[in-house]
């Protein structure tokens, strides 16, 4: 590892700086979502569509993927190839399940009449959760790449920082979902109160 002024590897510092930038990206989306909440002038409206039990399950899946991610990192750091392969793959699979859930949800909403240009809820909902979903998809590709490296025995402890940086990204995507789950889904219960 190259010497750095702080002892923190450059890649890790880069990811944290990038995450700071991403905070503003999602803040802009969330602010727009909140400003336009209940401003749709035609239905279907959010309270008719949002399926809380369903999204709770996919939320739980994404949370557990974060657990798999830390276990994967810990396995790589320990130099445990079996654990590295297993947990990286599990993280990616849980991410894929989440994406599948999102695909099902979008599809269902469209069938309920919520096309992308139907009303303000459609635009803000699809773009906000869509941006998040795109981040999950990038993460899944990244994790699967690491997994293939692990399969070929090229992901030893010397690559721990690489996995840690991927993990930081993955956890951040999870953290964003913690916020979106609360703001978009659960707080819909407070509207009209």
């Amino acid at each position: 590892m190259e010497r750095t002024s702080t002892g923190v590897p450059n890649e890790k510092m880069l990811m944290w700086t990038f995450i700071g930038s991403e905070c503003m990206l999602f803040a802009s989306l969330i602010a727009t979502f909140l400003v336009y909440r209940d401003q749709s002038i035609v239905g279907p409206y959010e309270e008719e569509l949002l399926n809380i039990p369903f999204i709770t399950v996919t939320t739980f899946v994404l949370l557990m993927s974060s657990l798999m991610m830390v276990l994967a990192l810990s396995a790589v750091q320990r130099g445990d190839p079996r654990g590295s392969r297993l947990f990286l793959l599990l993280t990616a699979i849980l991410g894929l399940i989440f994406l599948g859930g999102q695909f099902y949800e979008f599809n269902h909403f469209v069938h309920e009449g919520l096309g992308l240009s139907r009303n303000l809820f459609a635009g803000t909902f699809y773009l906000t959760t869509g941006f998040h979903g795109a981040h999950v998809a990038v993460g899944v590709i990244w994790l699967l790449t690491l997994w293939t490296l692990a399969l070929r025995g090229r992901l030893g402890p010397e690559k721990a920082v690489t996995v840690e940086v991927a993990g930081l990204y993955w956890h951040f995507v999870d953290v964003v979902w913690i916020v979106l789950f609360t703001v978009i889904y659960l707080m819909s219960g407070a509207t009209g109160a």
């Binding site: 990038f18 930038s21 990206l25 992308l116 635009g123 773009l127």
Partner: peptide, 24 residues
């Protein structure tokens, strides 16, 4: 890094308004 993302998002909204008929 903090100022450009809001601009990116607003241009994405505009792009969707122009290309896909969203209502932002």
């Amino acid at each position: 890094i903090l100022a450009f993302p809001p601009f990116t998002i607003s241009t994405v909204f505009l792009l969707f308004d122009r290309m896909f008929g969203t209502l932002f």
